[in-house]
Amino acid sequence: MADEVELTIDGQTIRVEAGITILAAAEQAGIKIPVICYFGHTTANGLCRMCVVETKGARGLQPACVTAVKQGAEIQTHSPDVVRARRTILEMLAATVDLSEAPEIQSMLEEYGAKPERFAGGERRQPPMLDDNPVYIRDYAKCVLCWRCVQVCADDAQYAYAINFSGRGFKSSIATFFDKPMPETTCVFCGQCVGVCPTGALKAKREFLIEQGVSLVDVFYETRMRGAGKRSTGGPRLDKGG
């Protein structure tokens, strides 16, 4: 039997396996902590900070998804400071990104009484939609930079390394090598990035076309025929020597 620790979460004392995260411990206690970037199948990087909690005696707030439980810790998951941070993060995010196809984040906005209009007039990230391949579209105006697509494309799953980042800070975005269209990259069109995207920024081309009211026959031609043979072999591939 693995080592156990005892800790208190929202006044409830529980015993859990040592080394697990506060997020996992809270779940065992039936307490729900909101998450945006955390995803069970990719490496957790602690990006969004929605999951922050307050630990008695500790400085600042701790991200529950990447912080291990400690013996004797007293944790509050919905203290006024926690709520203030979460609400502010949500407001700033909603004032930046199109969340119209991210229902989970929308219900968080509601739950926390977030008022994104406080940030009205601020810069939004709204690059044009990219429709450059038959398999998926990329609408980065909806991207919350959760990194999941980059991770599944790289060491977390596919080892294709087709996508990474451009810029930094507020001006960060997901990008390919010199912003080349997907068919000219090392993308293998496995579609895993589409599967993990939480906001509709990456969407299957078929779904996109059907939403646009395109007939099923035309969808077939767009996604199966038009792209046939278009996969570039001259693109920059490490294994082929350019």
């Binding site: 900070r49 502010t88 700033m92 995010l93 601020g122 930079l145 930094r168 800070g169 507020f170």
Partner: peptide, 25 residues
């Protein structure tokens, strides 16, 4: 700070930009 934030975590990626915008106005 808005120029130098790395963009990894949301509070700083978004907050440095918002802080700048408020001060600008």
């Amino acid at each position: 700070f808005a120029h130098e934030s790395c963009g990894k975590c949301y509070p700083c990626q978004l907050g440095t930009q918002r802080q700048l915008e408020v001060l600008e106005r």
